[in-house]
Amino acid sequence: MNIIVCIKQVPDTAEIKINPETNTLMREGVPSIINPFDLHALEAAVRIKEDLGARVTALTMGPPQAESSLREAISMGADDAVLLSDRAFAGSDTWATSYALAGAIRKLGADIVFCGKQAIDGDTAQVGPETAEFLDIPHVSYVRNIEWIRDNTIRVQRLMDEGYDVVESPLPVLLTVVKELNQPRMPSLKGKMAAKKAQIRMMGKADIEADEDSLGLKGSPTKVKSIFAPETKAGRMMIEGGPEEQVDILIKELRKIKCL
């Protein structure tokens, strides 16, 4: 079985600054980490490898510096790493990112593709599902548990606002994962030693046989007009006390705002 884990290198903070003139992210001077959700994706892949046997490839699209994240992925159990990097990819939005990732995944071949639920910088949660669409394979998002894999089928639990869905899908499939899925392991010494020596495979636009117009800025339909933090809605209140007491207060409050 071949598993590809898409990892994104992100700045080590949830509070990224945005350049007010260009409306783009300012990444200078911030240390980079692997997107935390992607560590859960990697852990899931490595556990499947340990249980059923598989080859785990970490894939990232990014600048040459993203190589350090790929080495870290190897130290945590990935067998291979691929860096998808090309000037032509610069300025990609989620569409162009997914298009390029899908091109690489098609070349590499995968039975399961893992993504994080979302990246802590871009935060769109679009890349996983979009990549699946480009690949024309099913996807399940917000996976919180993998129940089993057999006969070319996988059964997972998808986290919902309340409870979870149980979803079965044929392979190949793309899964985006939430933190509830597992506890990512520490790197291992053997992994770290392997990571130091590992050859990172490079792929550029020529390797993914891409349509030039679908790459980078040119291939990005998103135009960022302005970025702002949405206003948080005020007037929240917590009701305490026993159930009956709470119901009484709730009714009173609802009447007050004329909802009852």
Partner: peptide
Amino acid sequence: KALAQSDFFGL
């Protein structure tokens, strides 16, 4: 278990 997973028992 964490030490085992990180290969410390085989040092």
